[in-house]
Design a protein around this nucleic acid. Structure first.
Length: 589
RNA sequence: GCCCCGGUAGCUCAGUUGGAUAGAGCGUUCCCCUCCUAAGGGAAAGGUCACAGGUUCAACUCCUGUCCGGGGCGCCA
């Protein structure tokens, strides 16, 4: 709807240039916006205001000149100058009628565009370490990332959703070792559990139990062999180093088991947890094109190649037996280690390799959705890309703030350390997938979020999810009533008679429908799914107001079918909008 | 100490990237079902946009400084 108006303005300026009323080299930045107030028409532009200085004329004079030069259009009934020099456009009823027809003709595709022109975008999100179930913080990243990806797809981008699996590294060794120790306990081996291990997590016992069932005593070793000559743990009673202790324990596990059996324990733990995460996300309506393994980067030599590229380009130096990346040359606060004293590459090295790989795969844009606690990590990743000659501007890192749960007006305590965090699955079971998905994206991602569990659960008009879904259900209900009254929907008759819909409520609803495609484009480009949530609430309000003010199933067949066409179009848009957020559109509530 | 995010109605938050009289939901007060689901609608009250400067035709929006809240600053991942 915006596009034709934009073209009219461009046409006007072409005419003004040829007339010599405007210098030929005049730079134009035409901002066309929806008006806040219908008194100001449908769209407004401030070009005249922005041209006061270059043209050295009064804004209202400039506005008059532009209006006089506008080509004719069937979409516009009136154009006027207002306020300090705004140009207001009033669209013709035909323009909105056209939009309703468009909704019904396009169906599920209404709102989609080819703005992205098929450019390839990769969206990496969640990527939680596979060391335990997802918690509510990951849930927000999942809902947000999925919505951003779907929005981009709707805006015509070719989207590749990816989960980066941190299946290499020390944290996973700690996990595997923890499982093995629990497994040994099942044979009655008495081993004091390391304080840095996964001590109180129930799923560790479950995985150990599965291992016991599948492998019997094939992986058994005696407590004495496991604990012999270990450096002391760091618990309160012995002043050892808990990190050194667990590292030694990991070494011991690898030694006693041998490479293959150790790998077996490791993979059993990894597969089990990853399967759980995958199922959790699928139930949440979040699916990926690819699960990308960090280990595959290590094993394929990609990490080594990445380090070599940095070394070749002179950005690495050796200090204290470790290899450092001079990221300060690219704006980072301090230099970062890529190869540790012990010869192991760091997580950061893997991440450099991963991001190199992403760009090599030819994505036009790469989006990472991270928890806000990783913000300090952004400069070093961008630094690495710059160092190897890639364009860090192709990478967008979207930081998602934490969600704080409230129940009964009280903050729900969450502590990862004590293991009493709330899992995503628990949240989904408590409030349902729809409420969880909707609430998670109701806020801008950089906003701290207060997640009110009671509100999310309440089946009342306080709850925005139900409010929107109810509008959809109500329309379905009207159609059921229609059948009961032995009417049928005559769509072609209704579409012919759309001009009968002159009531203010009907006009408002048509405006709301027309705004949907614009809203998707805007939300997609700035990665803000909350705009869709707000839009849907406004659309639902426009419908509920209309519903209360007018009867749809009236005797007059022409008016009845016109109104039914309008609300069927509304139902379609609600369905499309909720779909973008991963929320269902129920036919009855 | 340095860095990131936030501060808008009693509460939770929007504010179309600098535009017209700062908006919505909840809460409060009042009103509307002989009528397609009242899980709805209408009306009222409610504001020094944290504070102070600056930039310009125009600042909640951009710049600088201050105050308050949250988070981050590992050879962890």
């Amino acid at each position: 709807m915006k596009q034709p108006l934009q073209e009219l303005l461009i046409g006007a300026f072409e005419r003004l240039r040829s007339q010599g009323s405007v210098p030929p080299d005049l730079a134009l930045d035409i901002h066309l916006e929806r008006t806040r107030d219908r008194q100001h028409g449908d769209f407004a532009t401030n070009v005249a205001l922005t041209l006061t200085r270059p043209l050295k004329r009064k804004p209202r004079e400039i506005a008059d000149m532009i209006i006089a030069a506008l080509p004719d259009s069937g979409y516009v009934t009136k154009v006027e100058v207002a306020g300090p020099g705004f140009i207001n456009f009033f669209l013709s009823p035909a323009a909105y009628v056209e939009q309703v027809k468009q909704v019904l003709a396009s169906g599920e595709a209404y709102g989609r565009s080819d703005l992205g022109a098929g450019r390839r975008v990769q969206v990496e999100f969640v990527s939680a370490n596979p060391t335990g179930p997802l918690h509510v913080g990951h849930g927000r990243g999942a809902a947000y990332g999925a919505a951003v990806a779907d929005l981009l797809a709707a805006a015509g981008f070719q989207v590749h959703r990816e989960y980066y699996v941190n299946d290499a590294g020390r944290q996973m060794d700690i996990l595997a070792t923890s499982v093995w120790l629990r497994y040994l306990e099942m044979f009655g081996e008495k081993i004091r559990f390391p304080s840095a291990g996964y001590k109180s997590e129930n799923y560790i016992f479950d995985i150990a139990g599965a291992l016991y069932k599948e492998r019997g005593d094939a992986l058994r070793h005696t407590a004495a062999a496991v604990t012999a000559d270990l450096p002391p743990d760091g618990a309160a009673d012995d002043s050892g180093d808990k990190e050194a202790h667990i590292d030694a324990l990991i070494m011991r596990a690898k030694q006693l088991l041998g490479e293959q059996p150790y790998r077996l324990v490791f993979d059993r733990a990894l597969d089990s947890i990853l399967a759980d995460i995958r199922a959790d996300l699928e139930e949440f309506g979040v699916v990926y094109e690819e699960w990308f393994s960090e280990r595959s980067l290590v094993e394929s030599g990609a990490v080594e190649r990445a380090i070599q590229r940095l070394r070749d380009s002179g950005h690495l130096y050796e200090k204290d037996a470790a290899w450092w990346f001079r990221s300060t040359d690219f704006g980072d606060e301090k230099d970062r280690v890529v190869v540790r004293e012990n010869g192991q590459s760091t997580y950061f090295a893997s991440d450099i390799a991963y991001h190199m790989d992403k760009l090599e795969r030819g994505f036009d844009r790469v989006i990472d959705v991270w928890g806000a606690d990783h913000h300090g990590y952004v400069p070093r990743v961008k630094a690495a890309l710059a160092a190897i000659g890639d364009d860090p501007g192709r990478l967008d890192v979207l930081l998602v703030q934490f969600a704080i749960l409230y129940r009964g007006g009280q903050r729900v305590q969450m502590s990862t350390r004590s293991g009493e965090f709330v899992t995503l699955r628990e949240l989904r079971n408590e409030v349902g997938n729809d409420a969880a998905r909707f609430f998670y994206v109701m806020r801008k991602c950089e906003q701290h979020m207060d997640f009110d569990l009671d509100l999310a659960k309440s089946q009342s008009n306080d709850n925005p999810v139900y409010y929107v879904q109810y509008a959809h259900a109500r329309i379905c209900s009207v159609l059921r009533q229609m059948h009961d009254k032995v009417y049928t929907l005559d769509e072609s008759l209704g579409l012919e008679q759309l001009t009968l819909l002159q009531e203010a409520h009907e006009q408002d609803l048509m405006v709301a429908l027309a705004r949907f495609p614009e809203t998707i484009e805007a939300a997609a480009l700035v990665h803000e799914p909350h705009q869709i949530a707000y839009y849907l609430r406004e659309l639902a309000t426009a419908f509920h107001t209309y519903y209360n003010a007018h009867q749809f199933l009236v005797d007059d067949a022409r008016l009845r079918n016109a109104r039914l066409c309008l609300i069927v179009a509304t139902r379609q848009v609600i369905q499309n909008g909720l779909g973008l957020l991963g929320v269902s559109a129920p036919e009855a509530m």
